[in-house]
Design a binder for these strands. Structure first.
Lengths: 204, 204
DNA sequence: ACCTGAACACCGTTCAAGT
DNA sequence: ACCTGAACACCGTTCAAGT
């Protein structure tokens, strides 16, 4: 067995998360899946928090690297789509990224690119960060919900009655959930992002 | 010592979170703070997840109960402000609410009120849920960040260098962080919510 | 430089038995 | 109905000692 290094630990962590989910990820179980004593992991990674932060950074690699061909509002829309794709590319990706409160390069690069795109789309400089923030939280919120519903459906843990909101007391939510089930996620997301970006960049 | 009931467990959990934070909350430590064996808690509450869900529900009590005097976009803005106030009223309130993936009455009532307000503000019925969703995630994201910065500042764990984003590589983020430090949180939030709501409810 | 063994100080949850 | 004792099956992290 090849000697372990930090990259191998991260790769192993992804395999583990893909197979068993973020909640099951444990330093001890990860170590054993890598064929190594669990104490060993601490040679390569500071602690569990740092490992998950590293997963988030890994997931966001390249997301901000967008060509100069897209301009204005389209660039912000594009960034939002790239972020969602990256989050969806791994199980629990959205939760992994949302949980990290860090200032790591790829995370910062995304923020920087989003603010830049907002400015390019005509948002006044002092509001650009707010616009970028709004888009980012929409993507994270949307995708967290999306991924957790995937899991619930996969696990069969959501038979209908958990989902069945009392339509008498909450008619609007019931209707919204119905729409959510009918319309493809992709279309919902596109529509939502477009509407948010357009409205944020609307100059009066 | 009075006999324990579910309400006392929840009250004790709030006291504990207020004193030590959500991350320190443990069934065992909570039990001992209540002067009771930790097995006892499971008589009053199903498990730890259910306890935290109950905290979230508790926090959201009454947030949706808004008088009929506010109409249209103002009602949605009001709801957003009420949500933020509720989240801020308890330590780690935003994280507690964001972590719950549940369909409990107060949570649903807030969603219902927000969708209703969006419709009242002129958002077409089929987009109202999206608008409500966007506002809700803005408030949660904003307040999570706000509260975690409180803690970092309180703990003195953020001396300047962790916060000091490389201004050369990320000039826009650096500038945004600077603004964030200068402008009062309240004003930022109000401004942000107003802008989002106004743009979402803007009819072309 | 990298890994093991062993320990420390914890967890959440269950459940017979008590009152 | 409510609580204790005791157990089960885990955790993350550290660190001397090995190679």
């Amino acid at each position: 067995m090849a000697r372990l290094d930090r990259a191998a630990v991260i790769a192993g962590a992804w395999d583990f998360v893909e197979a068993s989910g973020l909640d099951a990820l444990t330093m001890r179980k990860l170590a054993s899946s890598l064929g190594v004593h669990h104490g060993t992991l601490y040679w390569h990674v500071e602690n569990k928090r740092a490992l998950i932060d590293a997963l988030a950074e890994d997931l966001l690699a390249g997301v901000a690297d967008i060509g100069p061909k897209e301009q204005g509002a389209d660039r912000l829309i594009s960034l939002a789509g790239r972020l969602r794709s990256a989050l969806l590319s791994r199980r629990d990706g959205a939760r992994i990224v949302a949980g990290t409160f860090v200032r790591q390069p790829n995370t910062l690069a995304f923020g920087e690119a989003a603010i830049d795109a907002a400015r390019d789309a005509g948002v006044p400089a002092e509001d650009a960060a707010l616009a970028a923030f709004t888009v980012q939280y929409f993507v994270l919120g949307f995708t967290i919900e999306e991924q957790s519903q995937h899991q619930l459906l996969d696990s069969g843990d959501w038979p209908t009655d958990t989902n069945a909101v009392d339509a008498g007391r909450f008619p609007l939510i019931s209707a919204a959930l119905d729409t959510l089930r009918r319309v493809p996620r992709e279309a919902q997301f596109d529509y939502g992002v477009r509407r948010i970006v357009r409205s944020l960049t609307f100059t009066e």
